[in-house]
Design a protein around this nucleic acid. Structure first.
Length: 419
RNA sequence: GUGGGUAUAGCUCAACCGGCAGAGCAUUGGACUGUGGCUCCAAAUGUUGCGGGUUCAAGUCCCGUUACCCACCCCA
């Protein structure tokens, strides 16, 4: 009997895991520099939290959440489908003072059919800025996303921006939109007919050409904002220009989660196909109160690193790994020297593995090749006599002798340069 | 939940109208007892995803099933 991993999950190892970890590590460093500290919440919560935060009429809550019950008391839990609700729950539960800047990294779970760049267990990296309402911070959050992508070497993306106002604006807008759509209603696809009654902003997500053609002439939400939301949106755009961040307005962009207010945005990557959104987020000023906390304006985004990695070359310099050394001793009598050499290499921050000194050199070299070592270091009688290490560059097959006393500086300057 | 595609050696894939299941790479041994990746020689490798059906004969045709991929829905 053999076993498969569950649909939509992956075994991560080798280069793929290394690249993912590089993305994570650089996120911690980068956002720490901007005052964001990591928060780690449970991977499961009470299901009610997500019902309340994401919106009961969303597909995520209706079909995609993994729910389970414990035997005794019949409490219903859910694997987290996203990060924001948990962060807010934690902030409220722990009575943290405002403002707060948080970074989270971890697995999320949604029961969807997998496809390119989409899995049932997937990673998200997200940042949340809690307790700041001013439009400057909307711009900061967006700028951080942009700078982070540049930092890790991703270039080919564009930022789409929109405002979906507050419940007051949306009420007004709904009336205007309904008035416009009434004569066209029979031309809309079945999905859009349903969308309009359930969650009217979602009609703009429709991929049907006929529907989209109609919506091109529909009134835009940004033209129907209340005075405060309109002012906020304008300030966000001003600040983005102040930060030097390029963006395009997409008046038809709405977001899939119910909790957003005012600013919403997506970072889209060209040439990624159907799953082209690598970062998405927005402001959610009402959610903390909805979850039982005090009025707390917040803004944040989440990133899908799996999708991002699809857009990046394997040998991106930003993701380069450290050099690997393989120490080959010819005979057990070099054990002590071998271990000392290993520790010295580790001290320089590089990777070092040991060959079994009892094995023939041919086999040891072969194993060095097998583990993709950059260098093989050979110590045997010839080397001992001359007081050197033989350093073989495994890529070029070139070999040079390095005086033991000078090996430390060799580690720093690398191969191929002579003083 | 809906639609399409794929499944053959460890990996990538071939096998015409249904007629002996193959190649490259990888693996193992040797040419080579202090040098891998190059070259040469040799060897090993299969329930053709699984279950049924049609046929003298099925990797090939039919039905079912499972897994994976892509897209829709939705979303990071």
């Amino acid at each position: 009997m053999t076993y498969n991993k569950p649909k939509g999950t992956r075994d991560l190892f080798g280069k793929e895991l290394q690249r993912l970890e590089a993305i994570n590590g650089m996120a911690r460093d980068f956002f720490l520099q901007h005052g964001y500290t990591e928060i780690r919440t449970p991977t499961f919560e009470f299901a009610a939290l997500f019902d309340r935060s994401i919106g009961e009429a969303t597909d995520i809550v209706e079909h995609e959440i993994y729910k389970f019950e414990t035997k005794g008391k019949g409490k219903v839990y859910a694997l987290r489908p996203e990060g924001t609700a948990s962060v807010l729950r934690a902030v409220i539960e722990n009575r943290l003072p405002m403002p707060q800047r948080f970074l989270y990294i971890g697995s999320m779970y949604r029961r969807e059919r997998p496809q390119k760049g989409r899995y049932r267990e997937f990673q998200q990296i997200g940042i949340e800025l809690l307790g700041e309402s001013r439009p400057f911070y909307d711009a900061e959050i967006i700028e951080l996303g942009s700078r982070y992508l540049h930092h890790i070497g991703s270039r080919d993306f564009r930022i789409e921006l929109n405002s979906i106002g507050c419940p007051r604006c949306r009420g007004q807008y709904r009336i205007a939109l309904e008035k416009f759509l009434t004569p066209h209603l029979s031309n809309l696809c079945d999905d859009c007919q349903k969308r309009f009654t359930r969650n009217f902003l979602r009609i703009f997500d429709c991929k049907n050409g006929t529907c989209q053609h109609i919506y091109d002439d529909a009134p835009k939400i940004t033209d129907n904002l209340c005075a405060e939301c309109g002012e906020h949106y304008e300030q966000v755009r001003n600040h983005l220009r102040g930060f030097g961040v390029d963006y395009t307005e997409n008046k038809k962009m709405v977001r899939g989660l119910d909790y957003y207010t005012r600013t919403v945005f997506e970072f889209k990557h060209g040439g990624l196909g159907a799953q082209d959104t690598v970062i998405a987020g927005g402001r959610y000023d009402l959610l903390v109160r909805e979850l039982g906390g005090a009025d707390t304006p917040c803004i944040g985004w989440a990133m899908g690193p799996e999708r991002l990695l699809l857009t990046m070359d394997d040998d991106r310099p930003e993701l380069k790994h450290r050099r690997t050394f393989y120490v080959i001793a010819i005979g057990e009598k070099y054990m002590d020297q071998m271990i000392g050499l290993r520790d010295q290499i580790h001290g320089s921050g590089n990777i070092c593995m040991l060959g079994d000194p009892g094995e023939p050199i041919k086999m040891q070299i072969k194993k060095a090749d097998r583990v993709s070592a950059d260098y093989a270091l050979i110590l045997g009688e010839d080397e001992e006599r001359e007081g050197v290490y033989a350093v073989k560059d495994m890529k070029t097959a070139k070999q040079e002798k390095v005086l033991i006393a000078e090996f430390a500086s060799f580690l720093v300057r690398g191969m191929g340069r002579k003083d």
